[in-house]
Amino acid sequence: MEVRTIKVFTTVDNINLHTQVVDMSMTYGQQFGPTYLDGADVTKIKPHNSHEGKTFYVLPNDDTLRVEAFEYYHTTDPSFLGRYMSALNHTKKWKYPQVNGLTSIKWADNNCYLATALLTLQQIELKFNPPALQDAYYRARAGEAANFCALILAYCNKTVGELGDVRETMSYLFQHANLDSCKRVLNVVCKTCGQQQTTLKGVEAVMYMGTLSYEQFKKGVQIPCTCGKQATKYLVQQESPFVMMSAPPAQYELKHGTFTCASEYTGNYQCGHYKHITSKETLYCIDGALLTKSSEYKGPITDVFYKENSYTTTIK
């Protein structure tokens, strides 16, 4: 009895394709271990004539594949690729409408935090270190965002349907971005203890939790000093293409032309909904596939993004 075979390709990165001759009487799992086709788990399936010449994702289970996976995804987590594939199996079914010149995501599976993050990423200057993220990001900007969303979920250790947080998501993504040249110098002034300067680099240099107003941050924000008295913390120097200011959701007025974009969060910790506000020729609110415009805006804002380049204080 002759062994019926077909020729397929296996890959971990969709760049390096490895030619395989597979036995049609055995499952993919018996031949390769966990195997995925377009995100779908085909591990328990036997090869079919229609699979001839198709590319299958496999887990990096030998040295060659491990090197290829690390170079593309910059992670050695053995569960990463499987999590990416199972997320992709959902995100490829989502709709990605162009809204006001940006790629958004039609609401499904509690994905409003991903839509808000995706919209924000198209408006701030950011370059990702893992080629996987950078490639998928370019495709997302062009309207094909399924891979990018699935990668975000995998890097953030999230599953489809789980509630997510924009600030946490951005923080994970910033860790995989090139923020080497970003720098922030802060000064804390206390009447009792004097003053202390701190220099922050990388992710810490672009994120701040405690106030939404970048102007206020430049002037000074009140913080408790270690001595128990009130101290003032203010920005001395900022070198970065953008800054992200966050605070627990509270009524906040966004003035046209003073910011790049913002995240609105309605609801409580267990259950809520994100919308995205962007400042173009007027203010726009993007909620999944829905767009509304207004000249002014007041609502429960939790993150505001500002364009920056270089700032030095005039406070002496």
Rank of each mutant, 00 (worst) to 15 (best):
V3K: 14
V3Y: 11
T5I: 13
T5H: 11
I6R: 10
K7T: 13
V8D: 03
V8E: 04
F9W: 11
T11H: 00
N14G: 15
I15V: 15
I15S: 14
L17A: 02
T19Y: 10
T19L: 10
V21C: 12
V22I: 06
V22R: 03
D23P: 08
D23Q: 12
M24C: 11
M26F: 14
T27P: 13
T27S: 10
G29F: 10
G29C: 03
Q30W: 15
Q31H: 11
F32Y: 07
F32V: 14
G33I: 07
G33D: 01
P34N: 14
Y36C: 01
L37E: 10
L37M: 11
D38Q: 10
G39N: 09
G39F: 09
A40M: 14
V42Y: 13
T43H: 11
K44S: 13
K44G: 13
K44Q: 11
I45Q: 14
I45T: 11
I45G: 13
K46N: 13
P47F: 07
N49V: 11
N49P: 12
S50V: 11
S50G: 11
E52L: 11
E52Q: 13
G53T: 10
G53V: 03
K54C: 13
K54H: 12
K54R: 12
T55P: 06
F56N: 04
V58M: 08
V58Q: 06
V58S: 09
V58H: 08
V58N: 07
L59Y: 15
P60W: 11
P60N: 02
P60H: 07
N61L: 14
D62S: 14
D63E: 12
D63S: 14
D63G: 05
L65Q: 15
L65K: 11
L65F: 06
R66T: 09
R66I: 12
E68N: 09
E68P: 06
E68A: 08
E68F: 02
F70G: 05
E71H: 06
Y73H: 02
P78L: 11
P78C: 09
S79P: 15
S79Y: 11
G82Q: 15
G82L: 15
R83T: 02
Y84W: 05
Y84I: 02
M85G: 04
M85I: 06
S86C: 13
A87N: 14
A87P: 03
L88S: 01
H90E: 14
H90A: 12
T91F: 02
T91A: 05
K92C: 11
K92P: 04
K93C: 13
W94N: 04
W94I: 03
Y96H: 04
Y96G: 06
P97M: 00
Q98V: 14
V99Y: 11
N100W: 11
N100G: 15
G101Y: 06
G101K: 11
G101Q: 07
L102E: 05
L102P: 03
T103Y: 09
S104A: 10
I105N: 02
I105V: 11
K106D: 11
W107M: 05
W107I: 06
A108H: 09
A108R: 07
D109N: 10
N110Q: 01
C112Y: 02
C112A: 10
Y113P: 02
L114T: 04
A115P: 05
A117S: 07
L118Q: 04
L119Y: 09
T120R: 04
Q122I: 02
Q123L: 04
Q123C: 07
Q123T: 07
I124G: 02
L126S: 05
F128I: 00
N129M: 09
N129P: 03
N129K: 14
P130M: 03
P130S: 07
P130Q: 05
P131T: 03
P131Y: 06
L133Y: 02
L133H: 03
D135E: 14
A136V: 01
Y137W: 03
Y137R: 04
R139K: 13
R139A: 14
A142S: 13
G143H: 05
G143W: 02
E144H: 09
A145H: 01
A146G: 07
A146V: 01
N147F: 02
N147T: 10
F148D: 01
A150N: 02
A150C: 09
A150Q: 04
A150K: 04
L151V: 05
I152V: 08
I152D: 03
A154Q: 05
C156H: 01
C156E: 01
N157H: 11
K158L: 06
K158S: 08
T159L: 12
T159S: 13
T159A: 14
T159P: 09
G161Y: 01
G161A: 06
E162N: 02
E162M: 05
L163E: 08
V166P: 06
R167T: 08
R167W: 07
R167H: 14
T169L: 08
T169Y: 01
M170H: 01
S171T: 13
S171Q: 13
L173Y: 04
Q175G: 04
H176V: 05
A177L: 04
A177C: 15
N178A: 11
N178D: 14
L179I: 00
L179R: 01
L179N: 00
D180P: 03
D180K: 10
D180T: 10
S181T: 13
C182Y: 09
C182Q: 00
K183E: 07
R184C: 00
R184I: 00
R184W: 09
V185W: 02
V185L: 05
V185I: 13
V188T: 15
V189T: 13
C190T: 04
C190G: 02
C190P: 05
K191I: 15
K191A: 12
K191E: 15
K191M: 10
K191R: 11
G194V: 01
G194A: 05
G194Q: 03
Q195E: 13
Q195N: 13
Q195I: 14
Q196M: 13
Q197E: 07
Q197C: 07
Q197S: 11
T198E: 10
G202L: 03
G202Y: 02
G202D: 04
A205R: 02
V206D: 00
M207Y: 08
Y208S: 08
M209E: 05
G210W: 00
G210F: 02
T211K: 02
L212W: 01
Y214W: 02
Y214C: 01
E215C: 05
E215F: 04
E215Y: 02
F217G: 01
K219V: 08
V221P: 00
V221A: 06
Q222F: 09
Q222L: 12
I223V: 15
I223S: 11
P224R: 14
P224M: 14
P224H: 10
T226R: 13
T226K: 14
T226Y: 09
C227Y: 05
C227T: 03
Q230Y: 12
Q230P: 12
A231N: 02
T232M: 11
T232Q: 05
T232K: 10
K233Q: 14
K233F: 04
Y234R: 13
L235R: 02
L235H: 02
L235W: 15
V236N: 00
Q237L: 13
Q237D: 06
Q238D: 06
E239S: 08
E239T: 10
P241K: 08
F242V: 08
F242E: 09
F242T: 00
M245S: 01
M245N: 06
A247Y: 06
A247W: 02
A247C: 15
P248G: 06
P248V: 15
A250K: 08
A250W: 06
Q251C: 12
Y252N: 03
E253Q: 09
L254M: 05
L254V: 01
K255H: 06
K255P: 06
G257E: 12
G257W: 00
T258L: 06
F259W: 02
T260P: 01
T260Q: 12
T260S: 05
C261H: 04
C261V: 05
C261K: 00
A262L: 01
S263W: 03
S263Q: 05
S263C: 13
E264Q: 11
Y265T: 08
T266E: 12
T266H: 02
G267K: 14
Q270R: 10
C271R: 11
C271S: 08
H273L: 02
Y274A: 05
K275S: 13
H276C: 08
H276N: 07
H276I: 05
I277M: 11
I277E: 03
S279N: 10
K280M: 11
E281M: 03
T282D: 11
L283H: 03
I286G: 00
I286L: 07
I286W: 00
D287M: 12
D287C: 02
D287F: 00
A289D: 14
L290E: 14
L291M: 14
T292W: 08
T292A: 07
K293A: 12
K293L: 09
S294R: 14
S295F: 05
S295I: 07
E296G: 08
Y297F: 12
K298H: 14
K298P: 00
T302D: 06
D303E: 03
F305W: 08
Y306N: 00
K307C: 09
S310G: 09
Y311V: 08
Y311D: 13
T312Q: 14
I315M: 15
I315Q: 15
I315R: 15
I315A: 15
K316C: 15
K316Y: 15
